[in-house]
Design a protein around this nucleic acid. Structure first.
Lengths: 199, 199
DNA sequence: AATAACAATTAGCTTAAGTTAATTTCTAAT
DNA sequence: ATTAGAAATTAACTTAAGCTAATTGTTATT
């Protein structure tokens, strides 16, 4: 069950964690031995509406899209790319998921579960400190995104996106981007035209 | 320095914490002895734009409004009422605050700071478990609010607010509500009229 | 009770987003 | 290379939000 992808990706995780806390070589090994890294081909549905999320995800490579289906239409609510964690609401609340998670590209993910996380924390208690820090950062980031969304017009939101996550525009279809911005694909087309007209 | 308000409010805190973890009588005393409960009169600014937040807040009674000033206009971005925690972005990032926090009513708040929290956690390590749980709940709640905001029209957002936080409409001026919903007070007026017309 | 300050509504006009439908462009599969 | 299907754009029309300004309603203060 040896997996080249996993071996390379382990180093990304170690590096990521090391930005928060210092790991001894032994602790690094504990993490490496977890072997919870999995590649998913494009279009894999990680979580479907109605399902109970039993895992949380850390994107090592690729892109995951979060979307709701409302009146039969897909409404994208978030994109997760390299080094972003996904904690499904369903994972926290233990209720059926309101939304889908699906891979927009071939994606490599580190999987977490309550049981495994607790086990890991028992072995490396420092990890809990990291968790608290990460939670606080995510909370801050969420708030900033919400504030931007509320205070900016659709056009400003689009401009903002081209600045804060320019990569997304190249790796994700525009109709996904549109609903992510809270508008229709037609509106996004017009906005892009308007912007290109005025240079 | 004995304070009646604080004595009563302490019980709320104990009760709130007990929903997450079990406290021994000794631990309850430790928390009570913190004495970090303060009343603030209406219109007190807890945090101003540009300031560094050194405290986080837990609202025991009253209402705190978060707002940005954009082009000289106040844009409300959140309301915090009983049993809600406020962790300013500035508190997490150590950067100057982008927004204000101010009391809409006379408000009683439990104050937290990194130093005091760490001290407390040293004495009651269980508290860290609670923190992680709370963070996870807040994260879920934030996501749900963001999704609602993105996927609902202004009118639907207003209707949704009347269902999820009906108290707010009675305790907060409508012009605050309007910007909180991401619209102008004029638009909110029209929406309310539209709704009352159609019963 | 009168007044000042602020909150909320109303009106008219402008602008842009939603909706429906058609057309063009792009992509992937045979 | 051709074609089918999807994505993106365009257009025409409808609807509602933003903006400016005026008016009415409410609250607090003297």
């Amino acid at each position: 069950m040896y997996n080249t992808t996993a071996v390379v990706m382990d180093d990304f995780i170690i590096k990521y964690i090391s930005a928060y806390i210092e790991l001894t070589p032994e602790e690094e090994d504990i993490i490496r031995n977890q072997n919870l890294i999995k590649p998913f081909p494009k279009d894999t549905v990680l979580l479907a509406e109605g399902e109970h999320a039993r895992e949380c995800y850390f994107v090592l490579k690729g892109c995951v899209r979060r979307y709701h289906i409302i009146n039969g239409e897909e409404r994208t609510t978030d994109f997760y790319t390299e080094n972003q964690s996904i904690i499904p609401v369903s994972y926290s609340t233990k209720k059926p998921s309101e939304y889908f998670l699906s891979c927009v590209e071939d994606t490599v993910i580190a999987l977490g579960s309550n049981e495994r996380n607790e086990e890991l924390i028992k072995q490396i208690p420092k990890l809990e400190t990291m968790l608290v820090q990460m939670a606080s950062e995510m909370q801050a980031q969420n708030q900033i995104e919400m504030d931007n969304f509320k205070n900016l017009s659709p056009e400003e939101r689009y401009r903002n996106l081209t600045e804060t996550r320019p990569d997304l525009l190249n790796r994700v279809p525009l109709n996904y981007i549109a609903t992510y911005l809270g508008i229709t694909p037609e509106s996004l087309s017009r906005i892009r035209k308007r912007i290109s007209r005025n240079r």
